[in-house]
Write a protein that binds this DNA or RNA. Sequence first.
DNA 1: AAACTAGTCAACCGCTAGTCA
DNA 2: GTGACTAGCGGTTGACTAGTT
Length: 316
Amino acid sequence: MVRTPCCKPELGLKKGAWTPEEDQKLISYLNNHGEGGWRTLPEKAGLKRCGKSCRLRWANYLRPDIKRGEFTEDEELSIISLHALHGNKWSDIARGLPGRTDNEIKNYWNTHIKKRLIKKGVDPVTHKSLISETSKSENLPEILNNQNIIQRTISSNDDLGNNEKVKNEDKKSRLSSARFLNKVANRVGKKINQSVLSEIIGSGGPLTTTTSVTVDSISDKSMNFSFTPTSYPLNQMTVNDNGNATSPPSMFSDSSVNDPLMYRSVDNIGFPGFLNEQHFMNELTRFLQEDVNNDVEVTPVYEYQDDFEEIGNYFA
DNA sequence: AAACTAGTCAACCGCTAGTCA
DNA sequence: GTGACTAGCGGTTGACTAGTT
């Protein structure tokens, strides 16, 4: 059997920009019949377009839940974090930004963020510094990844002023929490919702802004939750004598983490990875212990997540 | 005012994974 | 197992606009 082409030029199918009349026909048809059946849709809707073109027009422009306008700083940060996790998987990135389309994000990345990262000396592909490793260690000790080196640096600088000390301590805790989250990302990244995870990673430090996070339910329908990044560095989470994780109560202020949908219920509804909050915490406990024992060598998911000043500088 | 250049982004193209007969 | 078909993805193109010469 010969595969019929999606768009038959001999049928006089139109290409190029859509007219308001065409948009109206498409909207009207989809409102009445719902999405799907893109191949036969144009004929039924009275459009001289190929199905592919109709799907794209709907997905990228006409869908009612699409958010238009400028990207916010939060959104931009999310894109950078998610790109570090997913690479050029624009649809995956788009899932972390409700209302934004993969096409829009892709365009924004290529026309704005990429250039700004390059300008700031960050490789937009690897998210690593464009400065060579050698010169980095010689000239930029503050962005070293190794926490022990950071700690040694801090402890050997007792003559530092108070402000500088506080700054370094703050950085130390941020580095630790970011590293820990990178471990979590590497180890349980498949289990935990990627959007939530990347938001947690993205928050990392003591941020206070609230952003929206998409949480996928078992029915594959997106649900929006408000997400407030923790005000505590995650390395404040410790393991007590009983081997349980203890943490400030506001550690996970992300409502989706506290939401029942986060966890697998008896009906297997919700996330497949964790049975309940305790299970989630136990998993984290394991990683913390490994972290303490330095058992595992893990490649950071996003190297520059270790240095939040980099992100700050990006917007400077 | 006209020509040129660069930036933006909607739309297209080619490919692939998943599904079904 | 195979091939047709569909939906969706990522890369690329080209029309349009704004700024510059």
